[in-house]
Amino acid sequence: MDQIDKLAADVPLLPAATRDAAPARTRRWHIAVFLAPALLVYTALMIVPLADTLRLSLFRSVEHAPVFVGLDNFRVLLTDPRWSLHFWAAFRHNLYFFAFHILLQNPVGIALAALLSLPRLRGQAFYRTAFFLPTMLSFVIVGFTWKLILSPLWGVAPALLGSVGLRGWFHPWLGQEATALTTLALISVWQYVGIPMMLIYAAMLAIPGELIEAAELDGITGFAQFRKIKLPLIWPTVGICSILTFVGNFNAFDLIYTINGANAGPNFATDLLGTFLFRTFFGNQLQLGDPNMGATIATMMFLIILAGVAAYLFGIQTRMRRYAL
């Protein structure tokens, strides 16, 4: 009792600064304990390697000793034909792969989401589960499955085409230079369309019912309702899906590696920056592994991602109209 009285009497006498600092000091330790493991692992395996990769791109190994060469690796990568031809080809393929995804994945995702979010649709949960299933599978499974289906040996694809009278259309698409990359992009879209579909579906569910009812009272129904009311409200979500796809495309290694190997055949026709990085860094039948050039490619990918994300954040997102719901 005595002590409490004393405390109560003491507190107002303390200067404000000490009073605030005292609990903060006792709290500080557990904040550190809570943060330490996550920050430690994340810094050691994500930030440090990333920074080290940027550093390695400025060095070259001469007789097993690292020599600082400034930006010379980048000059070689971008202008020396031994490297630049592969680099620019892979870069072009990446852009094509990305454009293909944006132009196909988003519309299909929007269409499926629009159908799924129709009111009182039966079997909605079943459809949702089915549509998202491919997204759960690994590239290895997806890659081999489609490789088998499209294989001229097995004949599933020709048989299916034959059943609608189009047998003559079949070609070994994965094996031909002109069609291999497009086929891979289609397979990748097949796998990943679930993500835009799900996010857009969620955005559509979030549209308040009164808004739709008001539109209906005004006679806006069906497709016009979708185009004039729902579509403008989901654009920000479509933007997020696009940026996720953009970053994801730089991870697109597994699919190519599984189907066409590290050489991204036929004749490098499906080479993306991911497979190029793997080949360069690890080496293959044609060349020895070169960690410094690998780091240079990784740095270029990092810069491209940064540029893409910045362009989106400052160029597109700020101009996109957002409606408060």
Binding site: V48, P49, L50, T53, L277
Partner: peptide
């Protein structure tokens, strides 16, 4: 992507 740090 963490893969960019693979070399290091």
């Amino acid at each position: 992507p963490i893969r960019l740090g693979t070399v290091a």
